[in-house]
Design a protein around this nucleic acid. Structure first.
Lengths: 235, 235
DNA sequence: TAGACATTAATTGTCGACACAACATGAAGG
DNA sequence: CCTTCATGTTGTGTCGACAATTAATGTCTA
């Protein structure tokens, strides 16, 4: 409930520098622009964002706490690379928590919320038909995150947000190169309909199956890539 | 402060300094020695542990990520003080996750694990009968944490560990002053028996009721206390 | 006495410097 | 050709210093 990140206007905007770094990396990972294993040197980041390493470090420590990056002693931080077993556990945990979140959302949804969710689903569908792969992924993530926002239990919602991120990392790692293999047309629509109809059990079950399907579409082939940090994180 | 002659500290012993601080505060919060609202000034901590503020800061950022402490801009970090609503959400989340963890544990428990768990339950029972309140709390927490350790899904277990901590903070805040009001004699034993018998559904249900009972024993009276950091954290 | 206000102390925010460890490179030897 | 070792480079670990901000203190007035 107390989700407000309301930051006062204090020190110029340096107050937000840490959050800028945190959000930029988070966003880049979500958008699958920073593949698992990507290196994140403190000095490079401090130059990109124009602050000292102290600020970068703080953002990195937070990201490490979220299991988004891995910080090992005396080594460069890297984007997390969950193994097959951990990936399975992440999916299972997300199924268990998201189904409950959706069960709770099924009741508490106002009119404005409904139209927003329905709009997201429509937009995603359109993006898919037009082949806008990037947009579709973004809208899909937005769909799940907004549902979390509307959950009355924001503690559960916070846990779900973290798991959505970790799931994204796993998908980025193990998805088949083919573009939108991990998308099933009516899933989000079906979940939404069940939520609107107030059928919480059906909605929860559909969410479970939705995630099941996504997990089954993954393969376990490994691969890594190098990226240009500045071009991705700069904005 | 007078410890400044420690020139010969090698880097890898200092490496654990951060973990020492993190664990010490974590432990002190769990043991309810650091009441919610306690202030944690960086300089004070750095003097207590004989390191610079950089190391302290890192530990504090991690703790803030775990929702154990609250760090607001330009203000002293304080131990979290969840309000009534957040407390209810924490309990609900924990019920939902711990029941699943216990459901999973019910199958995968080797002989050594069983004896250890049973030993913990017995020791807790003894501590209760002898009025060793501190020991009982410690053993009770140990019981829940060890169950998490034995869960095959360690992602879920990690989430549960965080919720156990947050629950402890809430209990420290809202428990009635009377000593062991939040203890029901046979609860842990019953859960253990169900787990050993392989009855995962029963075990999960008992865990839920166990937490329900604990939550209902809380009152919402507010209070705060000042403590001497050095005497608690020093070891 | 109670409240408003100016002043002082305490605390966090940020930075740059230096020491140490890990990594990359290349030479020497088998 | 491959392995091994020395060496330089890169990057992190920690610290202390200074600036900016908040909290605390004391003073004055009604």
């Amino acid at each position: 409930m107390v989700q407000s990140l309301a930051q006062g206007r204090s020190t110029h905007s340096a107050a937000r520098a840490e959050d800028r770094i945190y959000d930029a990396i988070r966003h880049a990972v979500l958008a699958q622009q920073l593949p698992p294993g990507s290196r994140l040197p403190e000095l490079t980041l401090s130059e990109i964002f124009g602050v000292s390493r102290s600020v970068v470090r703080r953002a990195l420590v937070r990201l490490a706490g979220d299991h988004i990056i891995l910080m090992r002693r005396n080594q460069i931080a890297v984007v997390a690379r969950p193994g097959p077993e951990e990936t399975a556990q992440i999916f299972e945990a997300r199924r268990h928590i998201e189904s409950e979140v959706i069960r709770q959302v099924a009741g508490h949804l106002g009119e404005t919320a409904r139209t927003e969710i329905a709009g997201l689903v429509d937009a995603e569908h359109t993006a898919h038909r037009e082949g806008a792969h990037e947009d579709r992924i973004h809208l899909s993530l937005r769909f799940h995150e907004r549902l979390a926002d509307f959950c009355p239990n924001q503690v559960l919602a916070g846990i779900l947000r973290e798991l959505i991120l970790r799931t994204s990392i796993a998908v980025a790692l193990y998805k088949v190169p083919g573009i939108s293999a991990c998308y099933r047309e009516g899933d989000h629509r079906g979940i939404t309909d069940a939520i609107f109809a107030g059928d919480s059990e059906l909605a929860a079950r559909l969410a479970r199956e939705h995630l099941d399907h996504l997990e089954q579409r993954l393969t376990l082939a490994e691969r890594d890539g190098q990226v240009d940090l500045a071009s991705i994180l700069r904005r």
